[in-house]
Amino acid sequence: MLPATPPTTLIQIITSSASRRQSGVRLDLAGVTVVSDTSTAWLEPFTRGTASLTPVLLERSEKLRVPAISRTTFEGPAWLARAVRDVTCRDDGDTHRLECGVGRTFVVGPGGAWIVAEPLSAGPLDQVELEILFGAALLVALAARGSFSLHASAVLTGGGMAAFVGVSGAGKSTVAAPAAAGWQRLGDDILPIADRASRVVALPRFPQLKLPRDEQYPAGLPEAIPLRAVYEIDAGRERREVSIEPLSPRDGALVLLAHTVAARLFGARLLEQHLGFCAAAAARLRVCRLGYPRLLSALPAVRAAVTADLAASLGERRGADALS
């Protein structure tokens, strides 16, 4: 049996039987070390040399079959690797099996310890398969390790880190665009978050396919940054002014649940963990609804309002810390 709980923060990726007893590319992604027998140019900013693949996994991977997986967690069209694809995901509680209408099936092992692309004899992965492997499959593996990923843009401000979520086209990327004075954009698509020592942290070192190579997460920044606030964007032409409305922990949890990437693929056990995570995170995070007129001319006022909101909430928190 493969270990259900991996001893290290390591995800191993096997896509070929040729990688038996070989080393793989070492990638630092979202606070974990990923060792993979395949890589691609857009992962180069995250590459840190090579590392060994565990022989026991390789021994197993060739024989890996998952006959017990019969429960379908999701079946239908889904936006994946820049296209709508017919996706089926099955799980047996610990292991997820992801079929996306491409040549390979991706199997994510217990605790997110490994991902195997079957069949192992199918040759190099194409671009679409790589995007699914280092997208949906890796996000399910991270989730199984307790890191859930928001579909969000993210910025580092003088008042801390903030994430913007919202439906596609809501304006996440626009608000976080690097034109903002005093803000540094840290991500624009996928933002893994986790609970570290009872704090919600962002783990922004993750490939952002929407951004060019020189705008990927800088190597010099820490792997984990405390996340101060999440703003759900509600922009509309009919709106006249910028408004920030703090949400209750319950509504904050619903925002985090709704904007988690790949959650539709989660099996029952992972869904339960996701609910627990979002409930705990919402109790510690500031989650707000951010309304503003859908006009480019409104953006400076939006950013000023967010900056002021972060500063005010930081003041509140310091006050609360002093009292406790």
Binding site: A268, L271, L275, A279, A283
Partner: peptide, 14 residues
Amino acid sequence: RSREIGGEAVLLDL
């Protein structure tokens, strides 16, 4: 499944 959050609750239909 349910979770109580700040005196309110969220339900999840698995």
